[in-house]
Structures are given as structure tokens and as C-alpha cells.
């Protein structure tokens, strides 16, 4: 099977490679580029551990081929902090104990970025609905919702 040349920007840096068509975006990000903040949980687009931003909207990178992201602008959890300063959502998760084991956190935070872009003033119910595609197997949802609401406030929501 012929390899396909791809090029994409991840966290502001251009990455080029020749990949197998069946290579998943999440494997490209973790294994080829070496950014392991993005996690693989269920691998069936249920759990949201692999959520990254692609051209400004969140996707489950386990259900996207690397070749489909050719030319895309990708942001992972590693791209969120600027100049060593945590993003307000990252800070809010820290301050509000929004993580327990931490496995779902990268996905939760990436989804929250889009959630607050689309709705800067969410209610608690809207946060829960917005996080429908992200599972926390520690069941730490109370503090995750608290974190997103705190981030909204901090970001001027």
C-alpha cells in the first residue's frame, strides 16, 4: 500500500511525513511527532481522551486518519500554554481539583476550550451537555464542571 505524503501544523510547528493511509491521527501525534499529552482511551470515539483541535474545532483523533488531517492546523494540550503560562482552563482544573488520575484531562480541557468559545457563559447543565463526549472513569465530574465554570468566570464569561 502506497505511503502518502502529509504536512500539518501542530501547535504552530509544521510536521511532514510519509504515512500509511490507515495511520490514525492520534498515533501520528503520539508516536511520530512524540506529543503524548493526547491519550488513547476507548479507541472507538466514545471516551474523548484523544480530543484535539483541528482547524478550530474539536475532533476525536482516534476517529480521523492522519491523511485526513493533511494541511490541517492542529492544536493539542501541549499547545495551550503560552510562554510557560498555563491557559486559564488548565489553571482552573488545577485550582478546582478537576483531575484525579489525569487520563481524561487533556481531552476534557480541549473540549472545554471549544465549549467556552461557543458559549462563554455556560450554565452547569450546558457544561455537562458540552462534555457529553468525554468520559472520566474516576467519575470526577463534579469538579470538572466546577473547573470549567471557574475558567469561564476567569476568562471574563
Amino acid at each position: 500500500m502506497a505511503k502518502i505524503p502529509i504536512s500539518m501544523t501542530i501547535n504552530g510547528k509544521v510536521h511532514q511525513a510519509e504515512v500509511d493511509p490507515r495511520l490514525l491521527l492520534v498515533h501520528f501525534i503520539r508516536e511520530d511527532v512524540g506529543l503524548t499529552g493526547t491519550k488513547i482511551g476507548c479507541d472507538t470515539s466514545q471516551c474523548g481522551a484523544c480530543v484535539v483541535m483541528m482547524n478550530g474545532s474539536t475532533v476525536k483523533s482516534c476517529t480521523c486518519l492522519a491523511v485526513q488531517a493533511d494541511g490541517a492546523d492542529i492544536m493539542t494540550i501541549e499547545g495551550l500554554a503560552t510562554d510557560g503560562n498555563l491557559h486559564p482552563i488548565q489553571e482552573a482544573f488545577w485550582d478546582n481539583h478537576g483531575l484525579q488520575c489525569g487520563y481524561c484531562t487533556a481531552g476534557m480541557i480541549m473540549t472545554s476550550v471549544e465549549l467556552l468559545q461557543r458559549n462563554p457563559h455556560p450554565t452547569s447543565d450546558q457544561v455537562r451537555a458540552g462534555l457529553e463526549g468525554n468520559l472520566c472513569r474516576c467519575t470526577g465530574y463534579q469538579n470538572i464542571v466546577k473547573s470549567v465554570l471557574a475558567a469561564a468566570e476567569k476568562m471574563g464569561g
Binding site: 470515539s45 474523548g48 480530543v51 476517529t63 480521523c64 473540549t111 458540552g130 457529553e132 463526549g133
Partner: peptide, 9 residues
């Protein structure tokens, strides 16, 4: 349908 990421793609 599904969840936000499913609806996005």
C-alpha cells in the same frame, strides 16, 4: 446526535 466531536466531523 452523538456528542460535540461526533457532530463536528
Amino acid at each position: 446526535i452523538g456528542d460535540p466531536q461526533v457532530r463536528n466531523r
